[in-house]
């Protein structure tokens, strides 16, 4: 997804002088071609995330379309106030692109894990929040949103899915609609595991890449079903909750630091986000519903 980010931005920059890259000493070699072609629009500014965001806001104030990019927690946790005030409150746009989603850097421990970004950025007025899941989504949504009048957050992962989805901004995708009483809703790369888990189960499956604005009209279509949100971050459950009075449950992160190192697959398995565990969680909901029906 990072390579797609670079490719898409490079293609856009060839025809659009407003694009400026601001890096926090990450992905620098990957952007080597961009640097050589546009030396006055490429800045490996340093490991100073607060200032990266403030400078991005200042560039935006003067009509540029900047992309600020570094590792997720350092940009979105550490610089949350700069995003909130310098970009959102000032109404300066710009593009915030992170790598290292959730447990992508599992082996580095909890300092490098990122799961609050979507939830916290979603709460900021003016913000657009994207949990991108595939390379297609990266390409399409950067092209459609990079010059949006609002600040836009793009969350990239090293573990994209390859499933065909609707890449229109603000729109979700119905991947399975069996008229079932249980609907699984998910977002981002974890779709790979969710799809495998649900493939042959009698459930509906709905996917989102845009968490803000969330596709409320699509959610409304499943109002009469129980909704099981399966997600490897915070933010999607809260976004779906914007539609009032739904029957919802969450299957995802524990209230704990998952500092067991290893790989993203290792951690997903331990916390129940591997395909088998997700399938078990869905089957439990199906069984509970069935039992509930018998009781009634």
């Amino acid at each position: 997804m990072r390579a797609q980010f670079k490719n898409t931005v490079s293609e856009l920059a060839a025809h659009d002088d407003s694009i400026v890259i601001v890096l926090g000493d990450i992905s620098v070699y990957m952007f080597k071609d961009f640097w050589e072609k546009h030396p006055n629009r490429f800045y490996n500014m340093g490991i100073c995330e607060n200032t990266l965001v403030s400078v991005t806001a200042g560039l935006s104030s003067q009509g540029f379309n900047p992309f600020v990019h570094t590792i997720c927690p350092f940009l979105t946790d550490r610089s949350l106030e700069q995003i909130k005030l310098d970009m959102c409150y000032n109404n300066f746009a710009g593009n915030i692109v992170t790598c290292g989603a959730t447990f992508d850097y599992a082996w580095d421990g909890a300092t490098h894990h990122a799961y609050t970004d979507l939830a916290s950025l979603r709460m900021l007025p003016n913000m657009e929040v994207l949990h991108l899941g595939s390379k297609r989504e990266v390409d399409a949504l950067i092209r459609s949103q990079y010059n949006s009048p609002r600040p836009t957050y793009y969350r990239l992962s090293d573990h994209p899915h390859t499933i065909e989805t609707n890449t229109e901004f603000g729109k979700g995708t119905v991947l399975k609609n069996e008229g079932a009483p249980l609907t699984v809703m998910t977002a981002g790369p974890i779709l790979t595991n969710v799809m495998e888990a649900c493939r042959d189960l009698p459930v509906n499956l709905v996917y989102f890449h845009t968490l803000k604005p969330i596709d409320k009209a699509l959610i409304e279509q499943f109002r009469d079903t129980e909704i099981l949100v399966v997600h490897d971050a915070y933010g999607l459950y809260e976004a779906i909750s914007e539609v009032p009075a739904l029957r919802m449950r969450y299957h995802g992160l524990p209230d704990a630091f998952c500092g067991w190192y290893g790989t993203v697959q290792d951690i997903r398995k331990r916390i129940g986000l591997d395909p088998a565990s997700i399938r078990g969680a869905v089957q439990t909901r199906l069984a509970d519903r069935s039992q509930g029906a018998r009781v009634r």
């Binding site: 200032t51 935006s60 005030l85």
Partner: peptide
């Protein structure tokens, strides 16, 4: 030119404005 209040923000925005120029 910039909404400020939380300290340590305005100078960074100004750096971005100067870089833009």
């Amino acid at each position: 030119e910039a909404s400020t209040g939380s300290l340590g923000h305005g100078i960074g925005i100004a750096v971005g404005m100067a870089l833009a120029a």
